[in-house]
Amino acid sequence: MNIPYTVETRPDTGLANGKLGIWLFLASEVMLFGALFSTYIILRTGSVEWPHGELNVWLGMANTFILIGSSVTMVMSWAALKMREWGKHRAYLIVTFLLAAAFLVNKYFEYADHIRRGEGPAHSTFLAIYFTMTGLHGLHIIGGMVVMAYLIGPGAKLFKSNPEQFTNRIEYTGLYWHFVDLVWIFLFPVLYLL
């Protein structure tokens, strides 16, 4: 039995189910990260002093560049697929995956440096919220990488049997990935610069 409305649009919503589903998921993600940003506001405004310059701005900036680049390659991967350019799609998706891995490698060096200096989450309120927010964001990066690995690997077979459905899956993955980029766009100034 086929699952309905994976490609064709529902008459009531005008959308395929997957598209509405991913947007509702992203809505819940907005509230999740929103709660953490609220926590940040409470902690920061309630503290007598707030540290500046504890984080490496240049590493944070490099990671911002990496994530923006990955967002561009992700949307290009989807666009290539819409134009049925399979080779380009694969190349862009693999580059996106590698950029995500580069982000995590960078983050590893940042975390390792803090831990080596004894600056774990328990060291200060600032580091507690820093590790919580960037850690949750990092988990989202890993989640995106798992989905991309599937679509590069075994999931790619779907393109032969149902290219439209595969294209939709790439689009939904892209929406999630752009959201992860969007969250970092706010995390970077809030944690590294202000």
Partner: peptide, 23 residues
């Protein structure tokens, strides 16, 4: 039950993409 290949209207929004190349 509808089939995925029923030839109905496909995903909408920005996705009606004869013009993806122009973006």
């Amino acid at each position: 039950m509808q089939s995925d290949h029923a030839g109905h209207a496909h995903q909408g929004g920005h996705s009606d993409h004869g013009d993806v190349g122009s973006h």
